[in-house]
Amino acid sequence: MSRLIGYAAILAIGIAAPYLFPNYQSQMAELWLFIVFALTWDLVGGQMGYNSFGNVVFIGVGMYTCAIVQVGLFYSVTDYNAAKGGGQTVFTFDVVQYLEGLAVGLPLAAVAAGIVAAILGSAVLGMRGHYFAICTLGLGVAAGQIANGWDWIGAGSGMVVPHAPSGLGETSRFYYYLAFVLAVLTFIVVSWLYSTRFGLAINAIRDDEDKAEAMGLPTTRIKVTAWVISALFLGVAGGLLGNLKRFIDPIEVAFAGASFGVWMVLMVILGGKGTLWGPVIGAIVFQLLKEFFWTYLLGWQRVALGLMIVLIVVFFPQGILGFLRERFPERFGHKVDPALARGAAGEAAK
């Protein structure tokens, strides 16, 4: 019961937030997307034990796919990207066209990212540990370079995302709610997954993959499936992020391994790896700190962020949730995975 009230309160805050803090709508929209990044990263990195630095690939693929569909439904993508910077205004979208573009573009962003994940996953998920991590890092860099050299999508000079027509009202609020819905949906799907046998299977792979295989689990297919599920949500998140930023730079925005790619890992570590709520808490704290640094420590913001990373890893290796759970096992028990909590409580009682 109290759990239901808690969920209702979070939803209410999420719905009311743009009215309470109208000046921070785009930051809050970004926060919901960060929550999607962190939740999906933890599915593979925390719960399955495969630390990926390449999940930005799915964001970038989703971002480009969505923008290309938004344009391509009505104009030639080649002409559109070639004309950029020429001050042309012939490429306008009315409200119906704009919404149609999103309605087709966002699902296709998910599909494209999912397909890329299935292909890449079959190739690299055979690797383990550090090899996998480094390989995914390479994938992110390679994807950025490919986009950087591909004229059709604007190459190094990037791609302008169709601007919203004035009839749509305030776009930052519009995107805030889309991001909010996506985050809630991601949370629901991920927490459902953890309640299924699939959730147990990815935990088993994390704990001992050879054993899981020896017990007959189709480990490769499970790993690829988990990555594809992450990618589906990341693709949509990428599509939304592109529209939020309004301009896609192949390396700074779409395949931004050095920012989003690393940040999503940090959020999870900050909040608590391998837990349901850890990524959510981590993303919130991270976004607050990041905005604070960018506002008050301008010029030094990246140094401050770097320092924070070091402090997190040294003092909270288990993350906020892990730290709290160690301190107050009985108290935390019921909010986290009940089975795990009972284990922790029993351990404390011994």
């Binding site: 147990l200 935990n203 704990d207 050879d210 054993k211 020896a214 089975a339 009972r342 284990g343």
Partner: peptide, 11 residues
Amino acid sequence: TRIYGGMTCVQ
């Protein structure tokens, strides 16, 4: 011996 250390016995 190989078991899944991070999961409960029931799991």
